[in-house]
């Protein structure tokens, strides 16, 4: 039983990392209806920028705000230069644009900082917490726990932003009905700018955590693919959905790997989340927390 909980908790904690990436997608999708394929590229760009800056012997405490500014500016520029002229175009056009954008950002990242793999040291070691292993005989990673803590803080502040502030209310209004938001005088572009800026920030946090776990390399862009089943599970428009979806995916993929894996020869972790998502799509296409489409006559 201890082992079960160890796997479960480890899975939940790593699920938080998926949630972080999914969150970036949700923010942009919710406010502008754009499925931002470039989110993974942004995560990579953020991580490599941070590492690149620290390579100039700049302390991480200064590198963080610098990367943050870079990411927010990147988000704003993308919104202004790429998406604004395409406003009112069909969703599929916008989606294609973000695919192009993904390649552009990846290229830009490598142009600026080179393509070699780097390590990212946040001072958090991926070692078991001693008091937990002493008391319960489970090994829970310090790193995972800290990552979960960071994610929790991020999500709480986003929730506060969305639900307690004037800008947040405007964000939700825009997400609900563009035209009506425009009619009450909410400048859509300003709101989209803010959303892209926030998405840049989320990408930075995700990039730092993923980068320090797996190394900062091109493969970081693929974490976006990991977020896909999370989004299907949690719903594309729901922040709580991204969190819960991430937890479910994280936990089930680890449990499946450990308990079902041996029966089918292992290697389940890679595809299990997608299968889970597919099954889920059939049962509840709008996701666990996807906004119910309110229909009234």
């Amino acid at each position: 039983m201890t082992f079960f909980f160890e796997v479960l908790i480890g899975g939940l904690l790593s699920g938080v990392m998926y949630s972080l990436v999914a969150l970036g997608f949700v923010l942009i999708y919710k406010a502008s209806g754009v499925f931002n394929f470039a989110q993974g590229a942004m995560v990579y760009f953020a991580a490599i920028t941070f590492v690149g800056v620290t390579e100039f012997d700049i302390s991480p405490w200064i590198a963080f705000p610098i990367s943050l500014i870079v990411m927010v500016v990147l988000g704003l520029v993308v919104e202004k230069v790429v998406l604004r002229p395409l406003v009112n175009q069909p969703q599929i056009t916008l989606f294609m644009v973000t695919i192009g954008l993904a390649f552009f950002i990846e290229g830009l990242a490598q142009l600026m900082w080179g393509a070699n793999v780097r390590g990212l040291e946040l001072g958090l070691q991926d070692v078991p917490l001693e008091w937990v292993s002493e008391r319960w005989g489970m090994s829970i990673s310090k790193f995972d726990l800290a990552a979960a803590g960071v994610a929790a803080i991020l999500v709480t502040s986003l929730a506060l932003l969305f639900n307690r502030t004037r800008i947040g209310r405007a964000l939700r209004a825009v997400a609900d009905d563009h035209q009506a938001a425009l009619a009450v005088g909410i400048p859509l572009q300003q709101i989209w700018g803010i959303v892209w800026g926030v998405a840049g920030f989320v990408a930075l946090v995700a990039g730092l955590l993923w980068g320090s776990r797996n190394g900062v390399q091109f493969a970081l862009t693929f974490v976006a693919l990991k977020a896909l089943p999370v989004l299907i599970l949690g719903g594309f428009e729901s922040i709580p959905g991204a969190i819960v979806g991430g937890l479910i995916i994280g936990a089930t993929e680890k449990l499946a790997e450990v308990y079902i894996g041996p029966m089918v020869g292992g290697g389940i972790e890679g595809w299990f989340p997608y299968m889970l998502a597919l099954v889920f799509l059939l049962v509840r296409p709008e996701g666990l927390f996807g906004e119910k489409i309110i229909r009234r006559v």
Partner: peptide
């Protein structure tokens, strides 16, 4: 009408004061 469906009535009214 175009109300913001997922906002409460009061939140709808408050968005009107955005400017």
């Amino acid at each position: 009408r175009h109300c913001f469906q997922h906002l409460t009535v009061e939140e709808n009214l408050l968005t009107g004061a955005f400017t």
